[in-house]
Lab assay of single mutants.
Amino acid sequence: MEVRTIKVFTTVDNINLHTQVVDMSMTYGQQFGPTYLDGADVTKIKPHNSHEGKTFYVLPNDDTLRVEAFEYYHTTDPSFLGRYMSALNHTKKWKYPQVNGLTSIKWADNNCYLATALLTLQQIELKFNPPALQDAYYRARAGEAANFCALILAYCNKTVGELGDVRETMSYLFQHANLDSCKRVLNVVCKTCGQQQTTLKGVEAVMYMGTLSYEQFKKGVQIPCTCGKQATKYLVQQESPFVMMSAPPAQYELKHGTFTCASEYTGNYQCGHYKHITSKETLYCIDGALLTKSSEYKGPITDVFYKENSYTTTIK
């Protein structure tokens, strides 16, 4: 009895394709271990004539594949690729409408935090270190965002349907971005203890939790000093293409032309909904596939993004 075979390709990165001759009487799992086709788990399936010449994702289970996976995804987590594939199996079914010149995501599976993050990423200057993220990001900007969303979920250790947080998501993504040249110098002034300067680099240099107003941050924000008295913390120097200011959701007025974009969060910790506000020729609110415009805006804002380049204080 002759062994019926077909020729397929296996890959971990969709760049390096490895030619395989597979036995049609055995499952993919018996031949390769966990195997995925377009995100779908085909591990328990036997090869079919229609699979001839198709590319299958496999887990990096030998040295060659491990090197290829690390170079593309910059992670050695053995569960990463499987999590990416199972997320992709959902995100490829989502709709990605162009809204006001940006790629958004039609609401499904509690994905409003991903839509808000995706919209924000198209408006701030950011370059990702893992080629996987950078490639998928370019495709997302062009309207094909399924891979990018699935990668975000995998890097953030999230599953489809789980509630997510924009600030946490951005923080994970910033860790995989090139923020080497970003720098922030802060000064804390206390009447009792004097003053202390701190220099922050990388992710810490672009994120701040405690106030939404970048102007206020430049002037000074009140913080408790270690001595128990009130101290003032203010920005001395900022070198970065953008800054992200966050605070627990509270009524906040966004003035046209003073910011790049913002995240609105309605609801409580267990259950809520994100919308995205962007400042173009007027203010726009993007909620999944829905767009509304207004000249002014007041609502429960939790993150505001500002364009920056270089700032030095005039406070002496």
Rank of each mutant, 00 (worst) to 15 (best):
E2S: 07
V3M: 14
R4A: 12
R4V: 13
I6R: 08
K7E: 08
F9L: 13
F9P: 05
T11Q: 05
T11I: 06
D13A: 05
I15V: 06
N16P: 05
L17M: 11
H18T: 13
T19S: 15
T19H: 09
T19D: 08
Q20K: 11
Q20R: 12
V22F: 07
D23S: 11
M24G: 14
S25Q: 12
T27N: 12
Y28R: 04
Q30V: 12
Q31H: 06
F32R: 07
G33N: 04
P34M: 06
T35S: 08
T35A: 06
D38T: 11
G39D: 10
G39L: 08
G39W: 10
A40L: 13
A40T: 14
A40V: 12
D41P: 13
D41S: 11
V42Q: 12
V42D: 05
K46G: 10
H48W: 13
H48A: 15
S50H: 12
S50K: 13
S50C: 15
S50Q: 12
H51M: 10
E52D: 11
G53L: 12
G53S: 10
T55P: 08
T55E: 09
F56P: 04
Y57L: 12
V58N: 08
P60K: 08
D62W: 08
D63F: 09
L65G: 08
E68P: 07
E68Q: 11
A69C: 15
A69V: 13
A69Y: 08
F70L: 15
Y72E: 10
Y72L: 11
Y72C: 07
Y73V: 02
H74G: 11
H74D: 07
H74Q: 10
T75Q: 10
T75S: 14
F80E: 03
F80Q: 02
L81P: 13
Y84T: 04
Y84R: 03
M85F: 15
M85C: 11
S86E: 15
A87R: 04
A87L: 08
A87K: 03
L88D: 04
N89D: 12
N89L: 09
K93G: 10
K93E: 11
W94C: 02
W94R: 03
K95R: 09
Y96V: 02
Y96W: 04
Q98L: 09
Q98D: 07
V99F: 15
V99Y: 10
N100R: 08
N100E: 09
T103Q: 05
T103D: 03
S104A: 07
I105W: 03
I105H: 04
I105A: 05
I105E: 02
D109C: 04
N110L: 01
N110R: 02
N110A: 02
N111E: 04
C112A: 03
C112K: 01
A115V: 05
T116V: 13
A117H: 03
L118G: 05
L121I: 09
Q123P: 03
I124R: 04
K127Y: 08
N129W: 06
P131Y: 01
P131W: 05
P131G: 06
A132V: 05
Q134E: 08
D135W: 09
A136W: 09
A136I: 03
A136F: 09
Y137R: 04
R139E: 11
A140W: 04
R141L: 13
R141W: 07
A142R: 11
A145K: 01
A146I: 03
N147T: 12
C149G: 00
A150F: 03
I152H: 03
Y155F: 05
Y155Q: 01
K158G: 03
V160K: 03
G161D: 03
E162L: 03
L163R: 14
L163A: 12
G164Y: 02
D165A: 05
R167L: 00
M170E: 02
M170I: 07
F174W: 04
H176M: 14
A177P: 03
L179I: 06
V185W: 04
L186M: 10
T192Q: 15
C193A: 02
C193W: 00
Q197F: 10
T198A: 12
L200V: 14
K201V: 09
K201D: 08
V203N: 07
V203Q: 11
V203G: 07
V203K: 12
A205G: 04
V206L: 06
Y208R: 03
Y208T: 06
Y208M: 07
M209I: 09
L212H: 04
Y214S: 01
E215K: 07
F217K: 02
K218L: 05
K218E: 04
K219T: 13
G220P: 10
G220H: 02
V221P: 02
V221R: 05
I223Q: 12
P224Q: 10
P224E: 14
P224V: 14
C227P: 01
G228C: 01
A231I: 03
L235Y: 01
L235K: 00
V236Q: 08
V236H: 07
Q237L: 13
Q237W: 10
Q238K: 01
Q238A: 02
Q238Y: 01
F242Y: 02
V243I: 10
V243R: 00
A247F: 03
P248G: 05
P249G: 01
Q251R: 11
Y252S: 05
E253K: 08
E253I: 15
K255Q: 11
H256D: 06
T260M: 13
C261W: 00
C261L: 00
A262S: 01
G267L: 04
N268T: 14
N268K: 08
Y269C: 09
Q270G: 08
C271N: 13
G272K: 00
Y274N: 00
Y274Q: 01
Y274M: 00
H276W: 09
H276C: 08
I277K: 00
T278G: 06
T282W: 08
T282P: 00
Y284D: 07
Y284C: 10
C285K: 06
I286P: 00
A289H: 14
A289P: 06
A289W: 05
L290I: 15
L291G: 08
T292R: 07
K298R: 10
V304L: 01
E308S: 09
N309C: 08
S310Y: 13
Y311T: 07
T312R: 14
T312Y: 09
T313Y: 13
T313V: 10
T314R: 09
T314N: 06
T314E: 07
I315D: 15
